[in-house]
Structure formats: C-alpha cells, structure tokens
Nucleic acid binder design. Structure first.
Length: 722
DNA sequence: ATTCAACGCTTTTTT
DNA sequence: AGCGTTGAAT
C-alpha cells in the first residue's frame, strides 16, 4: 500500500486526511482536485475501513466517473470498482430503477431527452390550444425545467404565478406532466426531482440510502442546482459526511439551474465544515494564469483567491485579429502545424469556441490541411435522426406506452401511418388500457383505418413481436439493433436513396450496431432498458478521447475539466464571446467565468483570435474584439498577425483597447463624415448628428439606406479607414 | 390522409 | 443555414 499523502502539498494532504464531517475543498483550476478526491476515497477504504460501496462520488460526466473509479482501483485494487461513482443523473436512474415501485413508476420507465421533450410539448400546446408561435416549445420547457430544478410542481408554480403568461405555462406544465406519466417517461429534470421526492416522502427508502451512503462527495459543486443540492443534503444526513469540491470562478451552468450560492453558502449549510483551499496550480504557466486571473478578477461576489504556480512564466499569449472566420481558421491551422512541428502532439492541442456552429469554418480548413481532428459535441451521435429512428423501434418495444418513440417509428420509413392513424391507435389504446405500442397487433379492431394501413400495421406488429421476443430471449444487442434496422425497412430506405448523405447515415447505423456490441460486452448486467438508459444519459464529455492523435475541437463548456498543452480560443468577439444573449450583468459575469475556464485549460501556450466579420445565419455580421481581450494585461500578450491574415492586428487591437471595456463607444463621439462600422448594418458614413450628439444619422454602404441610431447604444464604432 | 415544396424564424452553452 | 410549420398536390 503506497503512502497516500506522499506526493501531496499541505492543503491537499489536509483534505485527504479529513475523516468525518463536512468538508469543502475550494479547488482552483488545475490544483489537483481529482487527485484529492481519489486519494481521499482510497484512504477511507484502505485505511479507515469504509466499504467502497458506501461511498457515493458524484462527477460531472460518466467518463469522469469511470476515470475516477480506475484511479481508485490503481491506488487500492479491484475493491475500488465498488465505489458508486457516477453523475447525478445516472445515480438517480440507478436508484429509481431499483425503487420504481416505491417511487410510483413503471419498472420500464423511459428517459426523454430534449428532442423527445420538445415533441411531447408540441402535443401539449395542441391540447391546450396554445399558439406555438407565441409560446415556443423550447422556451416553455426551459421554464418548466427551471421549476423542476427548484423542485416545484405545477401547483407550486401556480401559487406563484400571476400574469397571463405564467398561467399558460402552469397549464402546459400540468399537461406535460400528465403526458409524461401517460407515456411512462421521465425527462432529465424528473430524474432528480422524483428521486428527491421519493427520498423525502418515503422514510423507509430514505433510511436505507442514508445508511448505505456513509460518505457523499460531489465534484464541480459550483454547478449543482437546487434539486441536486437537496439530494446531497438528504443522502449525506444525518452524519453529514459530505465533501464538496468546486470553484466559484468556474460556475458556467446557471442557465440550467446551477446556483453558485450552493458553494458560497456551504459553511452556512454545514456549520462545522472544514474548508480547505487548493491554490497551487500545477497546470499552466505563470503568464497564462496571470492573464486568466486578471479577467476573472473583474467579477464581483466571488471568493477572493490567489492561484499561483511555480512553473515559470512561459511564453506570452498571442492575440490576433482576422478579416473573417475563414482567415481565422487558416491561422488556427497554421498554429497547429507550427506547434506540431515543434513536437507538440496533435492530441495535446485544442481549439475552443463559444458555439458549436463555429466549428464548421475550422473543420473546413483542418480537412484541407489534412490535420486530424475530432469534434466533441455538436450534433451528437445519438441525436442523429437515423440513430434516433432505429432506437425508436427498440424504445417502443421496451415501453409500449412511449408515444413519442412509437410515433417516430411509424413515421420512418414512410409506411402510410401518419398523425391521423396514430391518433386513432392512441384512442384505441386508451379505451382498452394498453400501451400504444400494443395497438398495431389489434389493428383490425381499430376504427377508421384504411385497408392499406391495416396491412402496414400488421407488419409493424410482427416486427414488434419479433423484437420483443428476441430481447426476452437474450439475443445480443448488436443483433437486436440490426434486427430493428433491417426489419423496419430503415436500411432498405437508405440504400434505395443512394446519395452520399444516405451512405453516411448507413454508416451511423452500423456504428450504432457496434456501440450495442460494445455495451453487450462491457455491461455488468446487459438489458435493453440498461442500453437505452446509457444512450440517454451519454454526454458529450463522455466521448472525449485524449489519446487519438487528433486535435480536439469543442465548445468552451465542453472543455471543463480538461487540459491541453496548446489551446486556441477562437471567436473572441463581442456578441460571439461574450454571447450577445448574455446581456445582463450576471450573464456577463458567467461569460467571463467561461472565458476563465477556457484560458485555464492551457498548459503552455494560449492563443486568442477574433474575426472582424462572421457569417451568421446566412448573412455576414461585423464584430468587435471581445471585451475579454481588453481585460488581459498587455504584459501577458504578444499581438501577432500570422499567415494569410495581414489585415487586422495592431491597428485593430489599438481600437479594441481604446473601446474597452464597453460594448460600444460612449455617445457624443460621432461627427458628420466619420466612417463607422455597425454590427449588423456594416460600414457606413455619418451624415448627421441630432439631439446634441446622442442620435446619429448614418448612411450604410451595404444597402444605401440611412438610419438614425442612438450614439450611446448602437453596436457601432468609428473606423479610421483610408 | 399523406406527402411534398415553399416560407419564416431562430438555441448559446447541456445532463 | 437549417428546421418546422404552412399550404397545395397526390
């Protein structure tokens, strides 16, 4: 048995040696928190006699959970595999599958992802006769999600509601909940909420889990929402052996209900908590750290901290501007080639961006230069239409009540069963108290179907029966998937298509078959339900593979928890990053934290780029350099212009510094004759000034129109063009 | 009743 | 640019 604190610094050792009672670890970026977590667990098991299965360790991704488990195994052997390491959502599914009866759930409940939710909500809007234009399904769902994260049922929301809008949302929430129940489905938020309710209301179950979990540990605690917070409180009680690890500067998920107060108020919630701060960074150079610190330091309401490193200054950050996203991408590719020529491994290089759509321009260039790359996130494998189509057949069989899956399956391939026929089947299923998935077998009894539809449904019934029989007989999952793909006619449909796109879709279906085979081979107790659960709870982060020999492209959100020798942050423009929709002070601070997270992923080299114009939803928009660039101390940077981008650079940067930190120039600086550039209208010339300078008239070159703009508010600046 | 073609709007981030 | 809704053709 190795000495578990041998290579730890004093605060790390203090945390690892903490035995019982609440512990808060404030872990700055790159301060070795995973090490502390794994070592502490190893010590509790190996030296304090805590059974591994009595430890619940919550991580942010399934992949992180797996890695944590392996590291523990590395420290104390196979016993470490028994630790409950998982995400909140996976842990809840595990509990709910086991306690389905007590929770009032069907044993084979289905998990609905965002796409399923939206489809279901659409039906609810129809039910409630609400115009989907005025109430976008996703927007309504966001409000419902918000409520669920705060553990509010429709009734609770009703008591708070007042306005007309709120009333409609309450009605939709109620209807949506009913429909979920009818389908035997839970959405992501339900997984948490239902588990909390179960534990709060069912004393016996609560006691069982409370005594089972002697220690509860939560990583990324700053990103927990209220439901998760409550779950931790309940499970940790009464002995409160809870360890929260996090960093308030890295909270980037408030938009999905995360509440930084959870970490800021930890000591109030657990008054006898021990607090340990990890402030030595082992990852980045001093320059990178100083730059990142300077940016995040501008936020208010954060715990003061002083991250430091003894790794030396390293090289300065590079900041460069380009004409458009294509030039930017070319420069990124050049930077990658340069780094590779210096001996940096491709898989130690990452390109970050704020939004997934930005990956495209970069991918184009990397393909052209034959630079191997892997995109994390974006259109996820399991979100591809054909994959979802194939899975819909399996879901419809696993849970005959799942209308969404059933409807989807009926629609692809085309077999003459549209919304009308589905409705008739649903009505029939309702009156005969069966799931809609069981209705095709009785198609003869359903009123109002055409002969062709009955024939079509008979084939569906046969397929369902075969699939269900095969699943029960324990046919390997890859064969089950293949059966769905072939038997449904999906494969035939795509093969008949013959286009390159259909070719790709077929490949994805083959990929799904291998994923199923993989599941078959690795799962403890393979089951159809388990396979579908795993698919539903798969996260982008789970698919990050850092040993591929390829450059990694991803959003800054997905970069959390990772590190690379060389990081390029692209799209550093106001409106892109910070995102234009983050226009409140709070949202802006979150963007800044996001920027901090991105910067602190870099070990040795950090480059930041921006483009003057960017294609956006078909049209081209003008962009000013991000205010975050201006927040980086000049001493930490070296402005460069590399490769084909000659244009921007020093002059642009001069502008950027001059205009920072505001989004726009203060009013009263425009005079007739000034050349200006506006974020949406482009270049123009000031033709007049009104209201003592607060209103300017500008004629735009693009369309020749003249517009009157608020000098202080318009996203516009002067340019010194020749 | 289903399916196909044109129009209009927009999610930023994700378990 | 891409999706979903809408309106016309089958």
């Amino acid at each position: 048995m190795t000495d578990l604190v041998a290579h730890l610094n004093p605060p790390q050792a203090e945390a690892v040696l903490h035995d019982e009672g609440p512990l808060l670890v404030l872990a700055g970026a790159g301060s070795g928190k995973t090490r502390v977590l794994t070592h502490r667990i190893a010590r509790l098991v190996a030296e304090r006699g805590v059974p591994p299965w009595a430890i619940l360790a919550i991580t942010f991704t399934n992949k992180a959970a797996g890695e944590m488990r392996e590291r523990i195994v590395g420290l104390i052997g196979p016993l470490g595999r028994e630790v409950w390491a998982s995400t909140f959502h996976s842990a809840c599914v595990r509990i709910l599958r086991r306690e389905a009866e007590a929770a009032g759930l069907p044993r084979d409940f289905t998990i609905y992802d965002a796409d399923d939710q939206a489809r279901l909500m659409r039906q609810c809007l129809v039910d409630e006769d609400v115009d989907p234009k005025r109430f976008a399904p996703r927007a309504v769902l966001a409000q419902i999600s918000d409520a669920k994260n705060r553990l509010l049922a429709p009734e609770d929301l009703a008591s708070q509601a007042g306005s007309f809008t709120d009333d409609i949302v309450v009605r939709l929430y109620r209807r949506y909940a009913d429909r979920l129940r009818a389908a035997g489905a839970l959405d992501f938020d339900d997984l948490l909420m239902v588990t909390v309710r179960l534990l709060e209301n069912d004393e016996a179950t609560r006691h069982r889990y409370q005594s089972r979990f002697q220690h509860v540990m939560v990583d990324e605690y700053q990103d927990t929402n209220h439901a998760q917070y409550r779950l931790v409180r309940i499970l940790a009680a009464p002995q409160n052996n809870v360890m929260a690890v996090g960093d308030d500067d890295q909270g980037i998920y408030s938009w999905r209900g995360a509440d930084v107060r959870n970490i800021l108020d930890f000591e109030r919630d657990y008054p006898d908590a021990r607090v340990v701060a990890l402030e030595q960074n082992y990852r980045s150079t001093g320059t990178i750290l100083a730059a990142a610190n300077a940016v995040v330091a501008l936020n208010t309401g954060r715990r003061p901290k002083k991250l430091w490193t003894d790794l030396g200054d390293g090289e300065p950050l590079t900041v460069a501007g380009f004409r458009d996203e294509h030039d930017e991408a070319r420069a990124v590719a050049s930077e990658i080639d340069r780094a590779a020529a210096e001996g940096v491994r491709m898989d130690q290089i990452a390109v970050f961006y704020r939004t997934n759509a930005q990956s495209r321009a970069i991918e184009d260039q990397l393909v052209r230069r034959r630079i191997p790359y892997a995109v994390v996130g974006g259109p996820r494998f399991y979100e591809r239409a054909e994959v979802r189509d194939a899975l819909a057949y399996l879901r419809a069989v696993a849970n005959p009540g799942d209308v969404i899956a059933f409807t989807r399956a009926m629609g692809t391939p085309r077999r003459g069963i549209g919304p009308g026929a589905v409705q008739k089947l649903q009505a029939f299923a309702d009156t005969h108290r069966m799931g809609i998935g069981e209705a095709p077998a009785q198609a003869d009894m359903v009123d109002g179907l055409t002969a062709a539809q009955r024939r079509s449904l008979a084939a569906v019934a046969t397929l369902f029966a075969e699939l269900s029989q095969a699943a029960r007989a324990g046919l390997p999952f890859d064969q089950l998937v293949r059966m769905a793909v072939d038997g449904s006619g999906l494969r035939a449909m795509l093969e008949a298509d013959g286009t390159l796109e259909a070719q790709g879709r077929l490949e994805n279906l083959d990929e799904l078959v291998s994923v199923a085979a993989e599941y078959q081979a690795t799962a403890d107790q393979p089951s159809l339900q388990g396979f579908l659960d795993e698919v539903a709870l798969q996260s982008d982060g789970d698919l990050v593979d850092q040993d591929t020999g390829a450059v990694t492209l991803m959003t800054v959100h997905n970069a959390k928890g990772l590190e690379f020798d060389v990081v390029m942050m692209t799209g550093m423009e106001d409106g892109t990053f910070p995102h234009s929709r983050s226009d409140t002070p709070e949202a802006l601070e979150e963007e800044r934290r996001l920027c901090y997270v991105g910067m602190t992923r870099a070990r040795r080299r950090l480059g930041l780029t921006h483009a003057e114009t960017r294609g956006f939803r078909g049209s081209r928009e003008y962009r000013l350099p991000s205010r975050f660039l201006a927040e980086i101390p000049v001493t930490a940077t070296r402005a460069t212009s590399r490769g084909p981008a000659r244009r921007a650079t020093a002059a642009t940067l001069g502008h950027r510094v001059a205009s920072a930190p505001g989004r726009t120039q203060p009013g009263g600086r425009f005079d007739p004759g000034d050349n200006v550039v506006h974020a949406t209208f482009g270049e123009g010339v000031v033709t007049g000034v009104e209201s003592r300078g607060s209103l300017v008239r500008v004629r735009f070159a693009n369309d020749g129109t003249e517009r009157r703009l608020m000098a202080g508010a318009a996203p516009m600046r002067k340019v010194e063009t020749a």
